[in-house]
Amino acid sequence: MTIDCDIHPSIPNLAALLPYLDEHWREIVKLRGMDEFNSISYPARSPLTARPDWRPEKGKPAATLEQIRGECLDPFGTDLAICNCLHGIQLLFSEDLAAAFARAVNTLVAKELLDKEPRLRASIVVPIQNVGLAVEEIERWAGDPRFVQVLLLASGDHPLGKRIYWPIYAAAARHRLTIGIHAGSSYHNPPTAAGWPTYYTEDYTAQAQAFQTQLSSLICEGVFNQYPDLIVVLLESGWTWLPAHLWRLTKYWRGLRMEIPWVDRSPFDIVRSNVRLSLQPTDGPPDSADLERVIEHLKSDALLLFSTDYPHWQFDGRDALPSGLPASLKRKIMVDNPRATYARLVEPVA
C-alpha cells in the first residue's frame, strides 16, 4: 500500500474556474480582463516546477486526470494521494476575491478530481487573508470526508502561531482535519529576513527557513497547548533542517521559558506528538549512510510521510524513496505514518 501525501494538480486555466465562480465574479473576471493567479514560487518553465517527463507538449503539468493517473497514481502504485492545489490565491489582497477563488478551486477539485478518481483526497484551500472567511470555507467542505486537511503557505502576513489564526485551528480540530503548511509565500513580506533575493534559487532555498520560523511560532505561541490533538504537516519543506532547528529552539526554550510559560514540554516532544513532514524533497547528504544519521537525529520513526511532490522535479524515475532509509522505516513512511496522521484517511468515504 502507498499513500502519497503531497501531489499538485494544476488548475488548467482561468476558464476552468469560471463555472465555479458565481455570476458576479464571472462578470468581474471578464470586465476587468483578469488573468489567472500564478505565483513566482513555481515559475512555469523552471526545471523544478515539473519533471521533464511530466511536462506535456501542450497545457500544464498535472492538469488532467489522465496525467495524474498515468504519471503519478499508477506508476507509484498509489492507493491514496492528497491533492494540494497551489494556485496564487494567498497572494491576493482583496479578501473577497480570495474567498471567491478559494471556493472555486475547492469546488473544481471536488467535482473534477475527487468525484472522478476514488484514489484522490484533497486539502481545503482557504482565503487566509480573512480568518473568518477561511473558517467559512473550512465549514463548507468539512462534511465531505474526502477533504482531509486545510492548506496554508509557509510564508504569509504573520507567523502562523499568532492568535489571529487560531479560529482556523479550532475549525480544523473540530473536524479532525490536519493543517498542511506548504512551501510557498504570499509575498506580502520579503522572502528573507534581509529582503528580496536576486535569484529563484535563493527563494526556493529560503522555504526551509520559512518552515523553521513557522514551527517556532506554532510552538512558542502555544497552539498545541490550545489544540492538543491538532496535527500540522510541513509539506515540501526539505525536512533535514529539523533536528538542528529543534536543538536551537530547545536550548533557547530552556533559557527563556519565563517568556512562554505555557510551553510545558520540550519542542522535541511537541513535534513528536503534533508535527509531521512530507518526504520529498529530501535535502540529504551525498552519502546515504549519513542520511541514516540524520534520521536517527529525528529520534522518531513517526514523523515522515511519503510524498512524490508530483509533478515537481525532486527525483527521477520511481526513486521517490531516497537510498539510506532503513527497511523498517519504509513501511512506516509509506502507510502507517500517513494513516496515523490523517484521521480522515481511514474514515469510509460514502
Partner: peptide
C-alpha cells in the same frame, strides 16, 4: 522573518 514579526 519571511512571514512577518514573531511575538517573542
Amino acid at each position: 522573518s519571511s512571514t512577518g514579526w514573531g511575538s517573542f
